[in-house]
Design a binder for these strands. Structure first.
Length: 389
DNA sequence: AACATCATCAACCGCCGCCAT
DNA sequence: GATGGCGGCGGTTGATGATGT
């Protein structure tokens, strides 16, 4: 496969676009549409290649672009999406209307990466640096941590102590391995468990922003080459999502549940329910994502790495709740629906449970996704979310 | 004021997958 | 099946302005 034909063409302008060129391109596209990009420069009277025109339009001239700095809310969403999607900037951009992949990529590389590192979080794995160090030091923990030794960080330092990271090992992690380990899946369990650890008192209130983060990770299924615990919304949650006019709430109780039949090595469970019903927040995102609203991901410790409480709670996902044929595109959008529901002051109570027997059953194993299946369905993600532009 | 360094961002480059031939 | 055109994507570069020394 050779280079793009336009690259061979001579006498084509490169570099920054002049206002005149912009005007020509805008005029042409608004009048005729772009059609075939390779023909645009000729038809528009531009000495540019089609690719350059396309890029200019998509990244700068499109009328639906949102200019200006990213809001904290947008940054938080980018971080969370990056934890799931990695460097799939176009897919991340699809969740941020008016923002381009280029813009998001620039923000990530210039700003967010740095902030994460300053917090001791590896921007590639979304793990605290010390977490990696600990498991390198303690191979016996690797069985729990899914042999995730390949996720080493080459730079940065942690703001966690060894003791704190050691306590991470007490956090139950329900992972049934099938195939290769994945850091991505572990990341989210890590996020989740850390969150739970931080709220693991008999009854703990947390802000809905915290909860949004938690629920998001509970619902997102991810991780090529991973066999994760797939948190599946139960009927209560589904009803909650569909509830058109629930009472408002932004605070929730997190109540650790007894371990039932599950050994403590397995993951935490808890009952989350709203405790108060404050008025709705007026600053609702135009694109329906309210998580971490007005909240600095870095300043407010959404995922409080530094906490070291021993965790004893467990996640419960009943056998009947494990889908036999998981449809990724359906489940992957759940966090966003969920956040929409929170945004709409949806009253909800959600609960997930799994038993050890369930977990080790062949049936459950079969319900877990192979990397191939994951990848296949992952391609459907943008469609599932819907296009914003 | 001059210079160095950093941060930001627009644009380019090269690769890939899809599709038509 | 091979080839080439094309759109799209992610990584990288380079210009420019801001900030620090």
């Amino acid at each position: 496969m050779g280079r793009h034909s336009c690259c061979y063409k001579q006498k084509l302008r490169k570099g920054l676009w002049s206002p005149e060129e912009d005007e020509k391109l805008i005029h042409h596209i608004t009048k005729y549409g772009h059609g075939c990009w390779s023909s645009v420069p000729k038809l528009a009277g531009l000495q540019r290649c089609g690719k350059s025109c396309r890029l200019r339009w998509i990244n700068y001239l499109r009328p639906d672009l949102k200019r200006g700095r990213f809001s904290q809310q947008e940054e938080n969403l980018i971080i969370e999406l990056h934890a799931v999607l990695g460097n799939r900037w176009s897919q991340i951009a699809a969740q941020l209307p008016g923002r381009t992949d280029n813009e998001i990529k620039n923000l990530w590389n210039s700003s967010i990466k740095k902030k994460l590192r300053q917090k001791g979080i590896d921007p590639n794995t979304h793990k605290p640096f010390s977490e990696v160090e600990y498991y390198e030091e303690k191979p016996s923990a690797s069985s729990i941590k899914n042999n995730n030794h390949d996720q080493k960080t080459s730079e940065g330092s942690s703001d966690l102590t060894f003791a704190e990271s050691k306590n991470c090992n007490n956090i139950g992690i329900a992972v049934a391995q099938k195939g290769n380990p994945s850091s991505v899946g572990m990341d989210h369990e890590f996020f989740l468990n850390r969150f739970v650890a931080n709220h693991e008192t008999s009854t703990t209130s947390c802000k809905n922003s915290d909860l949004s983060g938690l629920l998001s990770f509970q619902h997102i299924n991810y991780g090529p080459n991973t066999t994760n615990l797939y948190f599946t919304p139960n009927s209560t949650t589904s009803a909650m999502v569909r509830n058109p006019s629930p009472p408002p709430c932004t605070n929730y109780e997190i109540t650790p549940r007894p371990p039932s039949v599950l050994p403590s090595i397995l993951a935490p469970s808890m009952l989350i329910k709203p405790t108060v019903n404050p008025p709705s927040d007026s600053s609702i995102s135009p694109f329906g994502v309210n998580k971490f609203q007005n909240m600095d991901f870095f300043e407010n410790n959404v995922f409080p790495w530094g906490k070291s409480e021993k965790l004893e709670s467990h996640i419960h996902v009943s056998e009947s709740e494990i889908p036999q044929d998981i449809k990724w595109n359906e489940h992957i959008q759940t966090p966003f629906l969920l956040n929409n529901s929170i945004q709409n002051q949806t009253h909800f109570a959600t609960e997930y449970s799994v038993s050890a027997a369930d977990w080790h059953s062949n049936e459950l194993q079969q319900s877990l996704q192979s990397a191939e299946v994951y990848s296949k369905h992952f391609q459907m993600l943008p469609a599932s979310f819907g296009q914003f532009s």
